[in-house]
Amino acid sequence: MKNYLKLVSFELSRFIKIYIALIVVTTVSQFAGVFSQSRNYAATVNQTLQQESFSLNDYFVSYPPLTFINVTVSGWFIIPIIFSAAALVFYSFFIWYRDWFGKNAFIYRLLMLPTNRINLFFSKLTAILLMVLGLVATQLILIPLESALFNQLLPDYLRYNLSTQTIISSSEYLSVLFPDSFIQFLIYYGLGSLVLIVLFTIILFERSFHLKGIVFGGLFGAGTFILMLSPFIIQTKLSPYYLYPIENFAIELFLGIVISIFSIWVSHYLLNKKITV
């Protein structure tokens, strides 16, 4: 257990520079978006009011109001999120491969640590999950700050005080990253964890058997995918909607847990008996 924590700490510190850079870039870009959009909006409104000699109410009859929600769907906002997500996806692979490639094959050191090798698996898994959740938390902190700034920058007749909840549920992609209810959160991120676990196992197949390993890994991945979908596949043969949603959910939950455990067990076996430097 202690070694596991040490390794988690270690894995995180290896990526911390890039991680902080991602956070900084996201923050800067999103605040830049806030400045840019609020300036433009205020200027556009003023210009229109003058040009067409509208009153404020007239304006809102013809044009929709701009709120912070609009900022959240702008490029300033979304691009760094996509970029960070891509970086973490990339690192999910790299977190393993970096130990093999590079001048100093650090994998020797990791495999020779006097600890259960599965701790290598768990620590890398934990590191990635924590980093994902860290970005989620960062965004949750940034949104109210950015929203407040956005409102401050606008004249008060253009302001809308929207809560974080409201802002998030109004954006299609934000409501996927931060779902409405905690149970949905657990489900989405649980599924993500499952995917990560299976991915790691596939990587370990490759690292154990190389080219053959890609085939094994591919089959393993495909197998787990089909297994997860099996209740739905079976139902299209039997009769669609044969199972009630709660039953579907229970089965999927069970399958997810079983697949995770099996995947971890396979990884354990590969790490101890088949892995090669």
Binding site: R14, G102, K103, N104, A105, F106, Y108, R109, M112, L113, P114, T115, N116, R117
Partner: peptide
């Protein structure tokens, strides 16, 4: 076993540490 690594050490031909 994993504990064996406390009694047997390996020095590979490249350094096994982060540069």
């Amino acid at each position: 076993t994993k504990e064996s690594y406390q009694t047997i050490a390996f020095i590979p031909d490249t350094i096994a540490m982060l540069s």
